[in-house]
Computed example of a mutant assay.
Amino acid sequence: MPIKIPDQLPAREILAREGVAIMDERTALRQDIRPLQIGLLNLMPNKIRTETQFARLMGTTPLQVELTLVRIGNHKAKNTPEEHLIAFYQTWAEVKARKFDGFIITGAPIELLPFEEVTYWEELKRILDWTTTNVHSSFFICWGAMAAAWHFHGIQKHTLEKKAFGVFRHRNNSPASPYLAGFSDDFSIPVSRWTEVRADDIHAGAPLELLVESDATGPCLATETAGNRLYMFNHIEYDSTSLKEEYDRDVAAGTSIGVPHGYYPDDDPTRQPLNRWRSHAHLLFGNWINQVYQTTAYDIGNIGKKPQPLVA
């Protein structure tokens, strides 16, 4: 089934060119089925690019998904036109009375700051608490995953000596997990961060299962059955050129940065990078949405009224 997004959203034209099935608002109203309500709290600076990345991954699932774009209310975006935010986004305060089948919180380029020094940390804490009552399943990405792991379980993030940057091989720790259905035993995932969470901290009492990790860059994907939460500490949603643009930006700014690991053929940044993670990104989001669909309340108003674990 297609994804339902606003008719004028810039992502629409991009996804249509790529062959992603999109449903217009009039057609959606004729469908005799309740679409899954998925919220995206977009903390990334280039919001248009990020919303396109996530819509792309959700738009190839066989279920109807209605995407709601959400932003922090007290934070002014520097890299997205205000008109775009007004036209397509709602603040969390405007949606907090609603229930969502799924809710995604993205990464943010503020990972070197202590959580308490982030200008919108207090609002984010309220949003994280709200997900426990108004969201059936939450999906946290990169810094968003670190923030949620700290907020819910006190799992610390640690600063790296140098940036973990590139495309790294990862190991499938739990082939029987419904989230990893169809996954290879090992596979590539983009990594771009200055901090990490550590496997020992995850294993030290937190009710998390580490599904995917890398010998080079550590934990990647963890799940928490009781809270219906997924923690993705890397950027599986990235486009083919996302790492290239980060690298080119840093080189142009004179920032000391190495060539992204395992990204360019022969580590030659003059060559076109290859996307080695696209299929697994679609698998992960398809598996997540399938689990949400199978376990969420038929009446969306019943979300949060009783525990609804995704995996028995």
Rank of each mutant, 00 (worst) to 15 (best):
G154N: 10
L221H: 02
T60V: 10
I3Q: 04
W277E: 13
D201H: 08
S256Y: 11
D239H: 11
P307R: 14
I5S: 01
P260K: 07
G144N: 03
G107P: 01
A297N: 12
A297G: 11
W143L: 13
Y238S: 04
S138F: 00
I105P: 00
P273Q: 07
S279P: 03
L274I: 14
V212R: 06
L113Y: 06
L41D: 00
D200G: 05
L211V: 12
G262V: 01
F100A: 01
N228V: 01
E83Y: 07
Q37Y: 08
N74R: 13
T132L: 01
E161R: 12
P307E: 09
Y120G: 09
T91K: 04
Q90R: 14
Q53F: 06
I127E: 00
L160C: 09
F54G: 06
V118W: 11
L112M: 12
V191T: 09
K305C: 11
A252R: 10
I72S: 12
Q272Y: 13
V292P: 08
Q31R: 14
H261R: 12
I303Q: 01
Y264G: 03
F165L: 13
L29N: 05
R126C: 07
K163Y: 04
P190R: 01
G107L: 06
T61F: 02
F139Y: 10
S177Y: 05
H75F: 10
S184H: 13
R249C: 04
I38V: 15
N302S: 14
N74F: 11
V70F: 05
E122I: 10
H75C: 06
H136K: 14
L180R: 09
L41H: 12
L180T: 13
T52A: 12
P6A: 14
